[in-house]
Design a protein around this nucleic acid. Structure first.
Length: 228
DNA sequence: GCGCCCAGTTACGCATTCCC
DNA sequence: GGGAATGCGTAACTGGGCGC
């Protein structure tokens, strides 16, 4: 080992498909019970419990006791970014059922990546914002233009309103499913939160997949000339 | 307070894989 | 081939919520 960090120990934890499934389920920032995570990872509760204990020990996830339930949550959003980056190198899963195919397609189409929209939807929104000169592409991310700030304020994104006048930088994430960038960071999170509040998007059951509502489709068309 | 139900953990045995 | 490591599921146990 070089330096004072043990990358191999974390890599070993990420080398197990069940643990990766659990972490991917937690990657949108929500908390899940051990039982829910065992179902999402398709293993027995005892197996999930063992994996969860190892992830807690490694300080990768937090656990909160609430009555007889224990809620597990990703500790550091940066781990989500690591998983998304790794996913861009990973070969596609082999599909064994129609349900798996549908779930995979839904996640690739639109999902949350910790706190912002990712997948095809995230990439298309980013492209639309650039087309309309609301986002300016930089070398390592994006900058909200004056028009972009106005647009975000008009949509009621209060965080942007509060910082009006200051340059607003949005880091970019490479999207593993689209192999293209989407905007993230505080502007991405604020934009996503507002989309939920306005009823433009909603979650599909317990998965991190999203669907765009009819209101959302109209709004995307109206505000960003984006056909969805 | 007691019994029942349910969520979660622990102990244990089995299967698989890897390394010598 | 055999031992070690790891992951899995079953069964048993623990702890908390809830109704009576």
């Amino acid at each position: 080992m070089t330096g004072d960090t043990n990358i191999a120990s974390v890599a070993a934890l990420l080398a197990d498909p069940t643990r990766v499934n659990i972490l991917m389920a937690l990657s949108d920032g929500r908390a899940f019970t051990a039982n829910e995570l065992s179902r999402l990872a398709r293993v027995a509760p005892s197996t999930a419990s063992g994996h969860l204990a190892r992830l807690v020990d490694a300080d990768l996830i937090n656990v909160e006791k609430q009555g007889r339930h224990r809620f597990f949550r990703m500790k550091n959003p940066a781990l989500t970014e690591v998983l998304e980056e790794l996913a861009t190198f990973a070969p596609a899963h082999s599909i064994h059922s129609l349900r798996e195919a549908e779930t995979g397609e839904a996640v690739r189409r639109a999902r949350t990546c910790y706190n912002h929209v990712a997948g095809k939807l995230g990439v298309e929104i980013t492209r639309a914002l650039i087309r309309q000169s609301l986002l300016i592409e930089l070398e390592d991310g994006y900058m909200l233009s004056r028009e972009g700030e106005r647009c975000f304020c008009d949509l009621g994104i209060t965080e942007i309103h509060a910082r009006k006048g200051q340059p607003i930088f949005a880091p970019r994430h490479i999207d593993w499913s689209e192999r293209y960038y989407h905007f993230a960071g505080a502007p991405g999170a604020a934009f996503t939160r507002r989309m939920f509040e306005l009823g433009w998007i909603k979650r599909i059951a317990t998965s991190r997949a999203l669907c765009v509502t009819e209101t959302g489709q109209q709004a995307l068309r109206q505000h960003f000339e984006l056909q969805w």
